[in-house]
Design a protein around this nucleic acid. Structure first.
Lengths: 237, 237
DNA sequence: TGCGAGAAACAAGTCCGACTTATTACCGTG
DNA sequence: CACGGTAATAAGTCGGACTTGTTTCTCGCA
C-alpha cells in the first residue's frame, strides 16, 4: 500500500518531539548525542542532524558544542506541529484546558477579523465568500470534507479583512486543524449549525453591519466553546 | 573581534530567505539544486541540506524529488525570522503597511490579555508585575535595555492572564522584537510614556478593574499606532 | 595545599565521495 | 499516436574522516 515514504529525519524528529512534549526529557536536559541517536535509530548521523535541525528551528532544542543538544521549554513555540504535541496527551486525547486557552484567544481574533471584513470587504471579496458558503452547504453530510472547506471559508474571510496577518493566521490555523482532523469528528448537527452561522455572517458582511457581525461571531464562539469543551471533557477521563 | 561563529547553514538559509521574501524567486520556482548551492557558497552539500531544512520547517520551501526544492508563498509562516524578512524591505526599512496590520491585531490581543489579567491575577502575579515595573522605571534612559525589560513585563502580564497561549505569544513577540531592536530606536519620550502607561495598568490590575484595564490598553495602543506608524512612514520614502 | 596552564577528551560542525530511490523526460517500438 | 521501457536527474541516505570550540582533567609550580 506504500506509505508516502516519509523521510527518516522527520520520523525521528516526531519521535523526539513526542518525548519532549510529554516531558520524558525535561528542559535543560540534553538529548542523546548525534552518534548515539544515529545508532539507536539505525540511520546515518546526517539524518539525525536534520532531525535535530527541525527541532531546533521549532525552538525546542539548541545545540551547544561539546555539551550536546539541550532541550528548551516547549511552551515557546507556535508551530502547528508543536501545538499539536502540546494539545494532545500521551494517550492521544485532547487536553481540555489547553483547548480552552486556545479557543479563548481565537474567539477574540475572530470577532476582530469578521468586524474588519464587514467594514472593508470589496464586492469581489463578497463574491468569493458567497461561493465558499455554497460549497459549505453542499458538504454538511461529509464531516471530513466539511472541515477542509470550513478552513477555506475562514481564509476567504481573512482575505476580506484586508489584514495580511489574518491571512497568515488563517493558514496557520488550517495547519493546526489538519493535524486534528481525526480528533474532532464533526457531527451533522455541528456542520449544519456552522453552515447556518456562516450564512448569517455573510449577510452581516454584505450589509457592512460591523457590530452585527461581531455579535454573531461572539454568539457562535460561545456555542463552539460549549460544544467542543463538553466533548473534550467527556473523553478526557 | 571574532564573530560568534554562526553556522554556515544558518547564514545560507538567511541569504536564501532574503531572496524569497524580496521576491527574487517567486512561489512555484525552484531553488538551485543542492549541488549547485553547495558550489556557489563553497560548502558541502550537507550544509546546504541543513539550510534547506530550515527553510522547509519554516514552510517556505518544499523539496520534491527529481524536481528540486520548490518555493512556497512566504505569507504562510508565523516564525519570527520570516516575519522579520517580510516586514523589512530590500533597503532595510520597515514597511508601514505590514506594520499596521501587525499592530491592529496585537492591540486587540493586548486588550483581551490585560482584561484577563485584571480578572484572574493572583497576589503572586501582582507582586511579579510590580517588581517588573520598578525595573522598567529604572531604565527609562536606556532604550535598548528598556526594550528587553518591556518584553519581560509583557511576559509577566501574560502569566497573570492565566492563559498558556498568551505566554507563548509573548515569547513569540519577544523574538520578533529582538530581531527589530535596531529598527525601533525608542526615544526617551517613548520610554517614559510607556512606563507611565504600565503603572496605570498595574493599578487597574491590582483593583481588578477589567473594563478600566481594557480601556487603558486601547488608549495606549492608539498612541503606539500613531507614534510607530508616523515614524515608519517618515522613514519609508 | 591550592591554583592556573596545558593536555586530553568530547560532541557538534564540516567535508568528501559514493550509492539509492523516486520521478520526470525521452525514445524507440507496436 | 499511444504505449512501455529506459536513461537522466535531484533529493535522500550512507560511511567515514577531519575540524573546531568547550569542558574537564591533570600536573607542575607557587
Amino acid at each position: 500500500m506504500s506509505t508516502p515514504a516519509e523521510r527518516k529525519s522527520d520520523l525521528i524528529a516526531r519521535d523526539l518531539l513526542r518525548q519532549i512534549a510529554h516531558g520524558d526529557v525535561a528542559p535543560g536536559d540534553t538529548l542523546p548525542t548525534e552518534a548515539a541517536l544515529a545508532e539507536r535509530y539505525g540511520v546515518n548521523r546526517s539524518v539525525v542532524r536534520e532531525a535535530n535541525k527541525l527541532l531546533e528551528v521549532h525552538g525546542l532544542v539548541q545545540p551547544v558544542r561539546r555539551r550536546g543538544t539541550v532541550v528548551l521549554d516547549p511552551a515557546g513555540s507556535l508551530s502547528p506541529m508543536v501545538m499539536h504535541a502540546l494539545l494532545v496527551d500521551a494517550e492521544g486525547q485532547v487536553n481540555p484546558e489547553v483547548l480552552a486557552d486556545f479557543i479563548e484567544i481565537r474567539a477574540e481574533l475572530d470577532v476582530l477579523m469578521y468586524g474588519l471584513a464587514a467594514a472593508r470587504r470589496t464586492d469581489d471579496d463578497l463574491a468569493v465568500l458567497e461561493q465558499a458558503v455554497v460549497r459549505l452547504g453542499a458538504l454538511v453530510d461529509e464531516p471530513a470534507a466539511y472541515g477542509r472547506e470550513a478552513s477555506a471559508f475562514a481564509l476567504a474571510v481573512a482575505a476580506a479583512s484586508h489584514n495580511r496577518l489574518f491571512v497568515t493566521l488563517a493558514r496557520w490555523h488550517q495547519q493546526v486543524y489538519d493535524d486534528f482532523e481525526e480528533l474532532f469528528s464533526l457531527t451533522r448537527q455541528a456542520t449544519v449549525a456552522h453552515c447556518q452561522g456562516c450564512r448569517m455572517l455573510i449577510e452581516a458582511i454584505r450589509a457592512r453591519e460591523v457590530e452585527l457581525a461581531r455579535r454573531l461571531v461572539r454568539g457562535f464562539h460561545d456555542w463552539v466553546r460549549e460544544t467542543l469543551l463538553a466533548s473534550a471533557r467527556k473523553e478526557h477521563r
